[in-house]
């Protein structure tokens, strides 16, 4: 570790507010991006699986 203490790490030589706000906003935006992408994928997959189930039910009904 470059810094002498955890406190020094947080303070970043008086630039802590700049460094940590930059990283905080970045993490938030990138995390949001990944979360939204994964959620959209889950919803799209659920929709296809719903169609498959409905089709299976229709087939089962017609063979009764």
């Amino acid at each position: 570790m470059y810094f002498e203490s955890f406190d020094a790490f947080l303070q970043m030589g008086k630039h802590g507010i700049y460094v940590w706000s930059a990283y905080g906003i970045s993490a938030l935006l990138i995390g949001l991006n990944i979360g939204l992408a994964l959620r959209a994928r889950t919803l799209a997959r659920a929709e296809v699986i719903r169609l498959i189930r409905r089709e299976a039910l229709n087939v089962a009904d017609s063979t009764d």
């Binding site: 570790m1 470059y2 630039h15 460094v19």
Partner: peptide, 16 residues
């Protein structure tokens, strides 16, 4: 953020 040395002109703000 934690292991690279500081910049001789910009100090730690360069870590951005």
């Amino acid at each position: 953020l934690a292991f690279a040395p500081a910049d001789y002109q910009q100090g730690d703000s360069y870590r951005i």
